[in-house]
Amino acid sequence: MIGFLARRLVNYVILCLVATFLAYLLASLTFDPVAILMQRNPPPPEAAIAAKRLALHFDQPIPLRFVHWLGGVVHGDFGRTVTDHNVGDELLPRMGVSLRLFLVGVTVGVILGVILGVVSAIRQYKISDYAATVFSFVILSTPVFVIGPLLKTGALQVNDWLGTEYLKFTGEQTPGFDGSWLASLGDRLRYLIVPTLTIALQQIAYYSRYQRSAMLDVLGSDFLRTASAKGLTRRRVLFKHGLRTALIPMATLFAFGFGLLIVGGTFTEHIFGWYGMGDWLIVGVNTQDANVVATVTLFVAVLVLISGWLSDVLYAALDPRVRV
């Protein structure tokens, strides 16, 4: 088992490298940061452009540039941006912003999604089940960039109703907020609610559908009948035997769910003015910066790696048939 997980890990690391290289390659092929520079008015002098080209190592072939960049990454140097800032300097704060958003959103989303799925499976064809079905259908059909602004509008209503601007949704904390550590946390939480909700809603809709059908599969199974025949109460049968087994297929979904999350996260950050990794990708593409794009890709790849590997571990932990 350990050997297997180790092999998987190696496989994921290789995938990460290939993915990052591909991103770097594609970016270097399609981007032309110098062209942007030349559009400036007044146009910069020839010498400046030549210097820029040299600074960006445009004289070297792309694979070599990538190896250079990767060599730097190993030492914590992620290269410089087109505008000659240190990429690494910006990386940590942005990562913090994204992770804060993702982790809370995912945790809330997975837990509520599983609960909602289980409840609608147990109460199949009751009103609550239909409501849950309609809810997830509508949410899954609505892109984040529609949900986001709608939630903003909703938050405004709530604030109106409360009579104070309780829910905030631009940025991640009040600029120049000055207060105790606790007050600062409270302030941040108020900024966190609406964006987290945006991410969580999607995750809930996604996981609840799968959890519902996984649970329905289990509900019809013989071993639940055996458990009832033993004399366990319905509640115990449903949770100890039913839910426990129905969680197994969910483990494999986490890796897939993450893809959804990262794309969704890009929109969420953009809409709520959080300067995270997703936002950075947009900036990177707009400024045609291969180093930034490669760095973001590496971040995404590592996240997927961790979640994929975690779902392998989780799967093995949940299902004894896999352990052997």
Partner: peptide, 19 residues
């Protein structure tokens, strides 16, 4: 159930909880 009346089912392969 299980105390005074108990039951044995048809398909043993799926009658026990796999986990």
């Amino acid at each position: 159930r299980g105390k005074r009346i108990s039951m044995v089912f048809q398909d043993p392969l799926s009658a026990l909880t796999p986990v």
